[in-house]
């Protein structure tokens, strides 16, 4: 595809000179963005090894926020989106919304799948671990190991 872009771009440049309003940003700006990205990566790295991770949700949120910030920096400056016309929203926002929607719709069925595991299924699932870390010897293979043996299918489906 790329060779094609190339040849078309040439011809097009000649036709629509206004389409490349040449100089947005400067090397100085790009160096600044680059340094900002490095700093953000360092912060993210530090956060992962800091007391923030005592509550993983906090640590994860911080790291994802930093990632989003980095992504915005790359998109805005390196990909020149800051200087593009409004079509940038048309192309990027629907895709972003749809991807977020897809992931959200996966949550109830796949993200929460273990909520509906039956007892017999728990037997073969990876070990639930919070029972162990407390340092007690007693292990439960399922949240309700002493529960009724008979309801072994889809007990979570009310």
């Amino acid at each position: 595809m790329s060779d094609h872009d190339d040849s078309n771009a040439d011809a097009h440049d000649a036709e629509h000179d206004e389409s490349h309003v040449g100089h947005h940003g400067s090397m100085k700006l790009f160096v600044t963005v680059f340094i900002a990205l490095i700093v953000l990566t360092t912060i993210s790295f530090t956060a992962a090894n800091s007391p923030l991770m005592n509550n993983p949700m906090v640590g994860w949120s911080v790291m994802m926020a930093i990632s989003c910030a980095k992504a915005m920096l790359v998109i805005s400056f390196f990909m020149h989106m800051l200087w593009e016309a409004n079509w940038k929203f048309v192309l990027t926002i629907p895709a972003s919304m749809m991807s977020v929607f897809l992931v959200l719709m996966l949550v109830p069925d796949v993200g929460l799948r273990t909520h509906r595991y039956s007892e017999s299924r728990w037997r073969y699932a990876s070990e639930p671990q919070e029972e162990h870390v407390a340092g007690e010897v007693h292990i439960e293979v399922s949240p309700d190991v002493d529960g009724d043996e008979s309801d072994d299918e889809d007990e979570g489906e009310e």
Binding site: M105, L106, D109, V110, R113, Y124, A125
Partner: peptide, 15 residues
Amino acid sequence: SIPASGGGQPLLWQH
């Protein structure tokens, strides 16, 4: 026999 790997979700494919 129980397949070697597991832990996934068939509904993921359907979605």
